Computed example of a mutant assay.
Amino acid sequence: MRTSLFEPFTEIDLPLPDRRDGKVRASWAIGHDRRLIVTTDRLSAFDRILAGVPYKGQVLNQLAAWWFDRTSDIVPNHVVSVPDPNALLARAAVPLPVEVVVRGHITGVTDTSVWGMYSEGQRSIYGYDFPDGLAKNTPLPNHIVTPTTKAQAGGHDVPLTCAQVVERGLLDADLWERVMDIALTVFGRGVEIAEQAGLILADTKYEFGMTHDGDLILIDEIHTPDSSRVWMADSYERRLADGNEPESLDKEDVRRAFAELGYKGEGPIPNVPDEVWSATTARYIVAYERLTGTPFDPGAYPVPERLTANLTKAGLL
């Protein structure tokens, strides 16, 4: 039984062409060079959809738009407009076949996380050599790019070295160099803004795409609790000293809850207490408010009715 007063927004059907579904988002074609992207409340981890979390989709959509605006001087992005709290009108782009993860701390519980591999005894990870004696959740000497392949349906992301991106023909050398430079610069901006909000941006994932005109742009989402690990700065040192995990404002607590049950993406999805999901909603909203400096204005539920009305008003339906 859900502790919320309404069901999370997990499904949507719109009378638009060329529907494409991801774990969290669905998109449709608007003309030849635009796409309407709707962000649901679905939460994914371990490359599986685990549940629906109320207001999560709205936080992701609006916070990503906020971040896109604050990094547009570094790299163009796909935002055209935000016609609804859960929807984005975007420039159409072909995604690059590489997910670009930038890490500022050694952390994580998944098999592709640096800490996951380091804790199993690996010292050469993603093409970088790590010394013995590193502690979980501590800063890395430098921000690093750790690419992965994009998971296919039912599969998992596969770690790559930066050199393998070019060696395997996923991207040419010049484009990959541009992507890495942009990713590190955007991450640096994110770290600075998060610090001003009393937060630590520990790591994040970026996706890039090429428009029909051949422009490289940032797509998907940026510095959200879904794509990043975000920690509270004021309790960070104390919690590490006590041997505890950082106080997070992302979905890492969900990953840990499932990992503690022995689940890492294979087999039936186990049940976790309802409190895990209500706490996740609260963390996402706190992240939004701390970063943007504005109160979260919850959109009306059920979402499909509100969404349809707003898209009609915007001339998109």
Rank of each mutant, 00 (worst) to 15 (best):
R25W: 11
E305W: 05
T308Y: 12
P141G: 13
E245I: 04
E99H: 08
D274A: 09
S124W: 10
R283K: 11
D47W: 03
H143E: 14
A300C: 14
T204H: 07
I30M: 13
G154M: 11
N142L: 13
G265V: 12
V80D: 04
E167I: 02
P270W: 01
E7M: 08
H223N: 15
D234T: 05
D33W: 01
D18G: 05
Y263H: 03
L240H: 11
K136G: 05
A257F: 02
T149F: 10
R290W: 01
E195P: 00
E247D: 15
A151H: 03
N61M: 14
V254E: 04
E7L: 06
V82D: 03
T185A: 04
L291V: 15
V179S: 01
T71Y: 03
Y55H: 15
D215A: 10
G299K: 08
P83C: 13
V272T: 04
G57K: 08
V272G: 00
G299L: 14
T308S: 14
A45F: 02
A93Y: 01
V101F: 06
R20V: 14
N77D: 02
A45D: 02
G127Q: 02
D13L: 15
A282F: 05
W231S: 08
D181S: 15
V191I: 06
N142Q: 14
A64N: 10
F9C: 08
A202I: 03
R34A: 12
Y263A: 02
R256S: 06
L14M: 13
E275F: 10
V186Y: 00
H156A: 10
V272W: 01
G169E: 10
E289C: 13
P147H: 15
E221T: 07
A282V: 08
G293E: 03
K136Y: 07
M117D: 02
G262T: 03
E177L: 11
T312F: 08
H32C: 13
D13F: 15
D73F: 01
I144N: 06
L160R: 12
